[in-house]
Every structure is written in C-alpha cells, then in structure tokens.
C-alpha cells in the first residue's frame, strides 16, 4: 500500500510528529471553487463584523 503524503510529513522529524495534517478531502475542499465561494461570503461577513466592532 502506498504511503500517504501526510504520513511522510509526520515522519519528517520530531517536531512534525505531534501536529495535525489535512487529508485529501480537506485539501480538495481548500481549492473547491463552489465551497470556497461559500466560505468567501462567510469569512467576509465575519471580517465585516470584526471591523465594525473595532471602530
């Protein structure tokens, strides 16, 4: 069975052993245009609230 990329990264050194890494689904969603458009709207709304709370 082929070694997954996250397994390679985890085993690079001691520093890398204890973190979390995205799997293939999480990575795919990062560049999925439809999902990212939804996130774009959500992040912008949150940022606008932060901006309005800051003034």
């Amino acid at each position: 069975m082929a070694v997954k990329q996250e397994e390679i990264n985890f085993s690079r050194n001691e520093q890398s052993e204890t973190t979390m890494l995205p799997g293939s689904f999480a990575k795919a969603m990062r560049t999925n245009v439809i999902w990212q458009f939804i996130r774009f709207v959500a992040i912008n709304l949150k940022m606008l609230i932060v901006v309005s709370k800051s003034h």
Binding site: P22, M29, R30, T31, V33, W35, Q36, F37, R39, F40, I43, N44, K46, M47
Partner: peptide, 11 residues
C-alpha cells in the same frame, strides 16, 4: 478564527 483555502486568497 482561521481558515485555509482559496477564499482567503481572493480576499
């Protein structure tokens, strides 16, 4: 909050 993806790129 924090999020990784294209959306941040567009922003």
């Amino acid at each position: 909050f924090g999020e990784i993806g294209l959306a941040g790129h567009w922003i």
